[in-house]
Amino acid sequence: MLLAIDSSTQTVGIALFDGSQVIGEIIWQTRSHHTVELSPAIEELFKKCGINYSQLKGLAVAAGPGSFTSLRIGFAIVKGLALSLHIPAVAIPTLDILVAAQPLRDIPMYALLQSGRNRYAIGKYHHQAKGWVPEGDIVIKKIDEISELATSPTMLCGELLTDDRHFLLKNNKNFILASPVQSLRRPSYLAYLAWRKLKSGKLEDVRFLSPTYIHIANPIL
């Protein structure tokens, strides 16, 4: 059994996955109350699914980018559980969770999430036989800068504000926007990606797991 925790942004999610099916999943919007909401939500999920901590064989956490404080809370819980239960834990990039839910197409794709002050953290992906593969660095951009990225048909998924979604649809017809449902980060995808990573034997030292933070000074895509 694997417990996955995504606390990257105000969209928070947890899931239990046994390698064959999603046992339970909870997703909610928080008003920056990660500290007081996350642990009780985990207890609620365990109770509803009839699972106890002794059944856990692995843990997963969304690595970011995301909010500095919220990421730290997720990492603290996962690292604490991993060390106390003596089980492995892996970190998966937050944008990889988003793209895992998208259909495979032979065109480029951008994934993004809100980064505060009307900016987005955005990363580019391309399609290979094994799925979506990241291309280049994750950077911070405003919506008018994002609108200039697509010069040919290009998919885009993630936490777009309503006005920004309308702006892109109006100003760049090359963008193919994922629906709000497809753009929801589901912790079950995090669990699935982490399960595959654990089974591959690519384990990390839990003590050195750390979030990914993106700064304005990053290079441009």
Rank of each mutant, 00 (worst) to 15 (best):
L16D: 12
D18T: 13
G19C: 09
G19D: 11
S20Q: 12
Q21F: 13
I23W: 08
G24F: 07
E25Q: 13
E25P: 08
I26L: 08
I26K: 06
W28H: 09
W28A: 02
Q29L: 08
R31W: 06
H33S: 11
H33C: 10
H33Q: 15
H33T: 12
H33P: 02
H33W: 07
H34Y: 11
H34N: 07
T35R: 09
T35M: 11
T35N: 06
T35L: 10
V36S: 14
E37V: 03
L38F: 02
P40R: 15
A41R: 15
E43W: 08
L45E: 02
L45P: 03
F46K: 14
F46T: 10
K48P: 01
C49R: 03
G50Y: 05
G50I: 03
G50V: 05
G50S: 12
I51L: 11
I51C: 10
I51P: 12
I51Q: 15
N52D: 12
Y53V: 10
Q55P: 01
L56F: 04
L56K: 04
L56D: 06
K57H: 12
K57P: 07
G58C: 05
G58T: 03
A60P: 07
A60G: 04
A60C: 07
A60Q: 07
V61S: 00
A62H: 02
A63R: 15
A63I: 04
A63M: 12
G64I: 01
P65W: 01
G66T: 00
S67H: 07
F68T: 07
S70C: 01
S70P: 00
L71K: 11
L71A: 08
L71N: 09
I73S: 05
I73T: 07
F75L: 07
F75H: 04
A76V: 08
I77F: 01
K79Q: 14
K79Y: 11
G80L: 05
G80M: 03
G80A: 01
G80K: 13
L81H: 13
A82H: 06
L83P: 07
L85E: 04
L85N: 08
P88V: 12
A89S: 10
V90G: 02
V90S: 02
A91N: 10
A91V: 11
I92C: 08
D96E: 14
I97L: 04
L98M: 06
L98V: 04
A100E: 12
Q102G: 09
L104F: 15
R105S: 13
R105N: 14
I107N: 10
I107E: 07
P108T: 06
Y110C: 03
A111V: 08
A111P: 07
A111M: 12
L112Y: 01
L113P: 00
L113K: 05
G116T: 05
G116V: 10
R117W: 06
